[in-house]
Design a protein around this nucleic acid. Structure first.
Length: 272
DNA sequence: CAGAAGCCCTGAAGGC
DNA sequence: TGCCTTCAGGGCTTCT
């Protein structure tokens, strides 16, 4: 499940295959993913040069020389693969982009992903991005900003951190990991979190370590070159129900609960 | 209006 | 073996 570290890793892997390259062909093999592809999608990509690749929240953005930006969201099972030779398309391969040097395939069995085009100059104001919270790894995201976003929130801190308006790019796994790292219970109401500085530090630490490890491969996630992430081996709570807490000196056992329909893993002993 | 629940979608895994 | 149910969850819509 691609969260910020996975999307960042895929984006970095795509850079050599896309930046400063010209899209020579684009094959669209269905009407859309979770939303329809925009009108003339393939034609608006064909012949365009990719100026720069970047990431916002869980979105990969490719600025084109046509003043449009290709927006890609991997959803749950989306994958961007670089192939040196054109592959035989699988039934879940939905978009095939060909440059002079490579073929990039977007595949997504569950089709929770998204591919669309926005005007580059107005991207920040697009509904996809306008209300997003700060990038967790940017200096803009600090204790004061987080405290302000959590003020008055009656929802559990777990749900608040999953809210992309509060902070953009966290998903279920890294929220669980960051809360354990900070020693904060996922059940605690957001407005009652005292140590926002520790929580901000934990979020940044966990995300940076995960990016360094190339993200976490649980099921579907792969780098653009097909290789795997390995941060899953460093999880302290996620998927560890019934196992011993890894915090130094803590004798607790990791529990799994369900919050807003989603699994939460935490240690009831050291997360308060 | 905030917060919670429902929905989309498919493949893997478990039960019988 | 094979059929059925359950689960995974990001982001959107709908309900309370």
């Amino acid at each position: 499940m691609p969260e910020l570290p996975e999307v960042e890793t895929v984006m970095r892997g795509l850079k050599p295959a896309l930046e400063s390259r010209t899209i020579r062909a684009c094959e669209v093999r269905r009407k859309g993913l979770r939303a329809p592809f925009p009108k003339g999608f393939a034609a608006r990509l064909t012949g365009k040069r990719v100026l720069a690749l970047h990431r916002r929240a869980k979105y990969i953005l490719a600025d084109l020389d046509s003043s449009e930006t290709l927006v890609v969201h991997l959803g749950m099972t989306g994958r961007m693969s670089i192939c040196q030779t054109p592959p035989v398309p699988d039934k879940h391969d939905h978009v095939v982009i060909t440059t002079d040097t490579a073929t990039i395939v977007f595949s997504d069995p569950r089709r929770f992903g998204l591919m669309t085009l926005v005007a580059t100059a107005a991207a920040d104001r697009d509904p996809l991005f306008a209300d997003l919270g700060p990038e967790p790894l940017s200096p803009d995201f600090d204790a004061r900003v987080l405290a302000a976003a959590l003020a008055g929130k009656k929802t559990p801190i777990k749900a608040a951190l999953l809210d992309q308006h509060v902070v953009a790019g966290l998903g279920n796994i890294y929220v669980c990991e960051a809360l354990h790292h900070a020693g904060i219970s996922p059940l605690r109401l957001a407005a009652t979190v005292q140590n926002c500085a520790a929580l901000v530090r934990a979020i940044k630490t966990v995300l940076k370590a995960a990016i360094k490890a190339g993200g976490s491969t649980l099921r579907d996630y792969r780098h653009a070159d097909g290789s795997l992430g390995y941060f899953q081996h460093s999880f302290t709570v996620y998927g560890r129900e019934g196992e011993a807490c890894r915090r130094k000196g803590c004798k607790g056992t990791i529990e799994r609960i369900v919050q807003s329909g989603r699994s939460t893993f935490y240690c009831p002993k050291c997360q308060k």
